[in-house]
Computed example of a mutant assay.
Amino acid sequence: MRDQSFEFLQNLLAAPSPSGYEQPAQRVFRSYVAPFAAISTDVMGNVFGAIEGGGENRPRVMLVGHSDEIGFQIKYMDDNGFIYFGAIGGVDPHLSTGQKVNIHGSKGIIPGVIGKKPIHLMEPKDRETVVKLDAQYIDIGVASKKEAEALVRVGDPVTFAVSLSTLQGDRVTSRGFDDKAGSFVVAEVLRQVSELSAKLQVDLYGVSSVQEEVGLRGGTTSSYTVNPDIGICVEVDFATDQPDVDKKHNGEVKIGKGPILPRGANINPALFDLLAETAAAENIPVQFTGIPRATGTDANVMQISRGGVATALVKIPLRYMHTPVEVLSLSDLENAVRLIVATLTRIKDKQVFIPN
């Protein structure tokens, strides 16, 4: 991966963006994309990067990845300054205790830890019980509610205090790959399209959407705004090459073996075929999965926006989803960009995506 792209990925992941509090990450996205696309932001906080194509009767193509991540929100502070919180998105209470966190408020970042009773003081039966999220608390090192309120306030968002680290080979780990990986791919597609020698025969709208983790909200409104003929959602998906995941659930999916192309009711068959044929023609590795239902992604709401959209998914294999240590392969990100750019150059007529 080129140095500037990797730096952008690092900055995007470092920026806090729990659902409803995405703007630090969206500012990073806007700054990166502004040199090669026309930028706008809507009242929800969705960011749009537009590149006009050439020719007449151009299809509108929308590419979307969501910028929001899971996290927490302060709900209550007790008399001793301990902070109680609720989950933003699907947080597993198994993994939150004992973690370092950052509270993001008007005073900047306030570090803290999610406390845990020492195992020595626990009854044997309690050692096998998960502490419910509403019983967990953050310790920021103060001695009273007054001290806590001078630093943070109810409603402030909280993230795990984790950023990008490299593992072996091209594998990296971070919080927030779900789905800043998607926003990254959207930005890189816009950059590469802007560098093509000839204009695409489509009008391209790259969207970094918001509030996906709490109900596909930004995907719904941005799809309505763009009103695309064709839509590609970039998401992450469960890798099944770790020891404790059943391949019967999601098929055989490995990190480093290319992006995933799902099939199912949410996917336009002609657009799926175009992506698969493009991958074969360009020697881009891809993997295939089946999703026999509506997907829990922005592709779901994009497909049924207004009069309907020819929709597909390009997914990045990801281990340990919704944990602070999500793992993916940089080559899968790069191959997703290659696949989408090559597919966009092949789109000429929206009519071919209408079933017959």
Score class of each variant (00 low, 15 high):
5 S>L: 09
11 N>R: 15
22 E>A: 00
26 Q>Y: 03
26 Q>E: 14
28 V>H: 02
30 R>A: 15
34 A>P: 05
37 A>T: 04
44 M>H: 11
44 M>K: 08
51 I>L: 15
56 E>H: 08
58 R>H: 09
60 R>V: 14
61 V>H: 00
69 E>K: 12
74 I>V: 15
75 K>C: 10
81 G>C: 03
83 I>V: 15
86 G>N: 12
87 A>I: 00
90 G>N: 11
93 P>F: 03
95 L>K: 06
99 Q>L: 13
99 Q>K: 14
104 H>G: 10
108 G>K: 12
109 I>S: 06
112 G>M: 08
113 V>T: 14
121 L>F: 13
125 K>F: 07
127 R>D: 02
127 R>G: 03
135 A>G: 06
137 Y>R: 07
145 K>E: 14
153 R>M: 09
154 V>T: 14
157 P>W: 07
157 P>I: 04
158 V>C: 06
165 S>Q: 13
170 D>C: 07
172 V>P: 04
174 S>V: 08
175 R>V: 01
177 F>T: 10
178 D>Q: 09
180 K>V: 11
187 A>Q: 10
196 L>D: 07
200 L>N: 06
201 Q>R: 14
202 V>L: 06
202 V>S: 03
206 G>T: 08
206 G>K: 05
208 S>L: 08
222 S>H: 04
223 S>Q: 08
236 V>Q: 00
239 A>I: 00
240 T>M: 01
245 V>S: 02
250 N>T: 06
254 K>S: 15
261 L>M: 11
263 R>L: 11
268 N>A: 08
269 P>L: 13
271 L>D: 04
274 L>E: 04
275 L>P: 02
300 N>I: 07
302 M>K: 06
303 Q>E: 11
308 G>P: 10
310 A>K: 11
313 L>Y: 03
315 K>Y: 04
318 L>H: 00
320 Y>D: 00
321 M>I: 14
322 H>F: 03
323 T>Y: 00
332 D>V: 01
334 E>G: 05
343 T>K: 08
344 L>S: 04
346 R>Q: 15
356 N>H: 15
